[in-house]
């Protein structure tokens, strides 16, 4: 009965397409937590990635070190030249931070959006299916204090936020990811501070887009962009990058700045997960709800 078999296959196909759509719909929702089988699989693969990553990264580090040795002389020269500058800057920073502390004391203002605690982590894997989802896996999870939406930085600057924390490993969504919930409130530094929101990544140019800056703000090229801390999750003052280009939006009410990220998103080995000391509004609401 070939007709019967054909129907059976057709039904199987239809059922699996329905399942596919249902599953995609289920995972596209803004989920607070993964289901336990997903968490179990993620933690297991995280463990396996950790095991694999150790010998591989040891070898690549060795090779990289060999490569670095070649440039040591030139680099040393450059660094020595900058050392004097550095000492001067350091004393200045120290003085300013002391003054800041004193002023805060006199004002009796203890909280600051800048303060955070950090958790060190190593990158153990990356989503091979890049361009659609830019995710990396780190080797710290809930047991070490990592929570959803925490800021993740490298020594150079902000790279993204924690998307899904597992027990021993977590997934980090990079700033380059195209996601409607991936927004960072940022400031363009300068005489006239401009506020905007990092919204998306220009794949071809390799630049972040800082949108919604009021049209009357004059933005100089090469000015630095930092986080503002007003989003409620990220601490203030994390470096994001440098402005390279500014464009007026289509309707002329806003302008968009193109930002060259200060970190290389394709060379991330060690990261820090930051927990802001001043809780954001969302966290406060949750706390109240729990009490």
């Amino acid at each position: 009965m070939p007709q019967f078999f054909f129907n059976k296959k057709l039904i199987l196909l239809l059922v699996s397409i329905i399942l596919l759509v249902a599953l995609i719909g289920f995972s596209m929702r803004d989920r607070d937590k993964l289901t336990w089988p997903e968490q179990f699989i993620q933690d297991t693969t995280g463990w396996a990635q950790n095991v694999f990553n150790k010998p591989v990264s040891a070898v690549t580090r060795f090779v990289e070190n060999l490569g670095d040795l070649q440039h040591t002389y030139d680099e040393n020269k450059k660094l020595k030249a900058r050392l004097d500058e550095y000492v001067q800057l350091k004393t200045e920073v120290q003085e300013l931070s002391e003054e800041n502390e004193d002023l805060r004391k006199t004002l009796d203002k203890k909280d600051s959006l800048r303060e955070y605690e950090s958790i060190q982590a190593t990158v153990i894997g990356r989503d091979p299916d890049q361009m659609w989802h830019e995710l990396i896996r780190i080797n710290k999870g809930k047991l070490q204090g990592v929570e959803k939406n925490m800021a993740v930085i490298t020594a150079d600057g902000l790279i993204g936020k924690v998307k899904t924390p597992g027990q021993f490993s977590s997934t980090v969504e990079l700033l380059t990811s195209v996601d409607t919930t991936n927004r960072v409130s940022a400031i363009v530094q300068g005489d006239d501070k401009a506020y905007g929101i990092i919204e998306g990544f220009d794949e071809e140019k390799g630049l972040l887009m800082l949108k919604r800056i009021p049209y009357d703000k004059k933005i100089k090229k090469n000015s630095y962009v930092i986080t503002s801390g007003y989003g409620g999750i990220f601490p203030r003052g994390l470096p994001i990058g440098k402005v390279v280009d500014v464009k007026i939006d289509q309707n002329g009410l806003n302008q968009t700045a193109y930002v060259q990220p200060s970190t290389d998103f394709y060379d991330i080995n060690n990261v820090m997960v930051l927990e802001r000391k001043v809780a954001g509004k969302e966290a406060e609401i949750q706390d109240e709800g729990q009490e």
């Binding site: 759509v21 995972s27 989503d127 091979p128 299916d129 899904t164 997934t171």
Partner: peptide, 10 residues
């Protein structure tokens, strides 16, 4: 899907 892309089904 579960471990890498986090969009189930694809």
């Amino acid at each position: 899907d579960v471990a890498y892309t986090e969009i189930l089904g694809v």
